[in-house]
Design a protein around this nucleic acid. Structure first.
Lengths: 197, 197
DNA sequence: GAAAAAAAATGAACTAGTTTAAGACTTTTA
DNA sequence: TAAAAGTCTTAAACTAGTTCATTTTTTTTC
């Protein structure tokens, strides 16, 4: 069966961990909602309860919090083939501390909380899919939380460039600074230093 | 049915997310290995392939890496009712960068990789258990990786004390410094400052 | 329970990263 | 397409956290 591009992308993402029959694929796709966000528009704002978990089929978004001084701390950038959202807010139905803003015109597939619960009843294989997906995310967050504490800002920048070369060129230096955990001024210094090396 | 203390502890831990029949409980327990480690002994050393994922029934352990300069970076403390190990090494059968050392005489239940795989075949409910366990761990690592980058050392210390009051008193200040990501000297200063407040 | 080893405290000199401010460059918007 | 808004660069003064060295206190070991 032939699917549209965004559906092929999400089905391939899922096929990394589990095999679905045609019928299951169609059932799964029927549980998703298509969402478009313009550049600079918000997908989520602090105080909201997360209505969806998102899969990005096109574009780029940043997930961030604002601290007491109003300074942004970016926790992730999400591009095509990535999952994003606030899983704590989504699961516990409590207000999120996050903002999610499109840095490019973006297209997403969202699964609502009701459909997420339904999914496990209708296609129990998805327990395995999410078990493995969360396991992999966990592995990378464990690494990131250690790096955040044990590496210098310069090392974190070099590591980010090595790990996400496709993202570096799509985001501003200022946002990258917000992710690395330093000021834009210091980010500028690091970049000119690293480029000089 | 009456179980020994360590078995009751792990069964209660699992019962937070899934219900098992008596038969399933017995099957599950049969897949576990009992492990004891003396204070200062290693459960795992860098270069090993992780043979088990562990549940702690008694004691306290620290999980850490050594950087190029030989300085320890502690990624977690594990006490009774906690799960630990190196999930990346365990899953991918590749060498671990971690050391796991008992800071007290400790007792654990381990599940081997072969039995972990068997578990999902024999009791598919465990997909759900691990899906939720990994989801919860993910939520706390997401928070920790953000805090590691956006909070000051003093704030991280206060946060650790608030979140793990039962652990603070069981570990040395030096190890806590290795977890917070600062030198023992600076940890000492922070503690005397915070206590003075 | 004495001796040895490890942990904790303190202080002075140092470095990674911040703050503030100002000018140049780039992108967005009317 | 001009003006406004946002991003990037540079630099000087500052602060959070490190390093090194020494002393005191606590824990471990025989």
């Amino acid at each position: 069966m032939k699917y549209k591009e965004s559906h092929t992308l999400i089905l391939n993402n899922i096929a990394r961990f589990i095999d679905l029959t045609e019928l299951e694929k169609q059932k799964y796709l029927s549980l998703l909602t298509e969402i478009k966000v313009k550049k600079k528009a918000f997908l989520m704002q602090a105080g909201d309860v997360a209505k969806y978990e998102y899969f990005i089929t096109k574009g780029c978004l940043k997930v961030y919090t604002l601290d007491e001084d109003g300074a942004p701390h970016i926790s992730m950038f999400a591009v095509e083939d990535y999952w994003t959202g606030d899983i704590a807010s989504f699961m516990m139905k409590k207000p999120t501390p996050y903002f999610i803003k499109a840095t490019e015109h973006s297209e997403l597939l969202g699964i609502s909380r009701a459909n997420y619960d339904l999914l496990f009843q209708e296609i129990p294989k998805f327990e395995k899919f999410y078990r493995i997906l969360y396991q992999k995310s966990l592995i990378s967050y464990i690494q990131r939380s250690n790096h955040g504490i044990s590496l210098t800002a310069e090392e974190r920048y070099i590591e980010f460039k090595r790990k996400y070369p496709q993202i570096v060129n799509r985001i501003t230096q200022k946002d990258l600074a917000g992710y690395i955990g330093i000021t834009p001024e210091f980010m500028s210094k690091i970049i000119s230093k690293v480029n000089r090396m």
